[in-house]
Amino acid sequence: MNKLTINLLLISISVGSVIISGCSKRNDSGSSMVTIKGSDTMVHLVSSWAEKYMALNPDAEISVTGGGSGTGIAAILNNTTDIAASSRSIKEKESTLAESKGIGFTRTVIAKDGIAVVVNIANEISALSLESLRLIFTGEVTNWKQVGGADKEIVVLSRESNSGTHVFFQKLVLRKDDYTQGALLMPSSSSLTQTVNDNENAIGYVGLGYADNAGDNVKTLSIITPDGNVIPSEETVKSGEYPIARPLLFYVNANANGKVKAFIDYCLSEEGQKIVSEIGYVSIAD
């Protein structure tokens, strides 16, 4: 009986130590693998690139994880990723932190994205100005009647604050004002479009790639500009007519090796940019 217990203990200890040593080994071999972390908006795009690239180069190993632009940039600062995929520029706080840690990085624009404002199909409004959007999302306007719609209360949907889209929309449309405290913060683009699909009075924003196949009851709004109403599309984003657009970025660790560079070159190549359009974002190729 006693012997059995001791044996069991020995076995569990040895198994445990193997597992622990296995874990630490994975970190050492990290250099042969390219890791990309960051924006949830870009996960689909980046993983498509990674799949195609790995099919072309059988020795290449690329790991892609989401978590939000902030997560990716934090990972660059902690030296735990080669590339941070980000749908927003680095914040001042983050770049000073990088300096203090002595971490260098470069910024590359790899594609463009338009942010579509979506409402339920039952909503009679089909276009809004940036100013009206600002009033709605800051909570100064709370009824659709006030912007020319039905006498219904507006249900404001926003993304969670870890989303690059959240910060970008706040900067550009809200002009750095705060979102209304009553805004529902959705943890993902798909839960946002799902809610717009179900709720006649909801308004929200998602990346152009999501708006295209958001659901049968989701409608994309045009933006009223001095030059007329502009619907978000690949052409209007590329030409700069559609006002709510942003660059999608790679922040690359300055110490990154040649494998990382080769992958980025592939993303920027003609073939890589073709994938961008296929997925619903806007390519930066002419």
Binding site: G67, G68, S69, G70, T71, A74, L77, N78, K91, K93, E94, L97, E160, S161, N162, S163, G182, L184, L185, P187
Partner: peptide, 20 residues
């Protein structure tokens, strides 16, 4: 609509700048 403590931590921890 409410925001619970757990949801707040889960939603915001990923984005937060280190040490802020």
């Amino acid at each position: 609509s409410v925001r619970t403590m757990t949801a707040t931590i889960a939603a915001e921890m990923g984005e937060v700048p280190f040490g802020s």
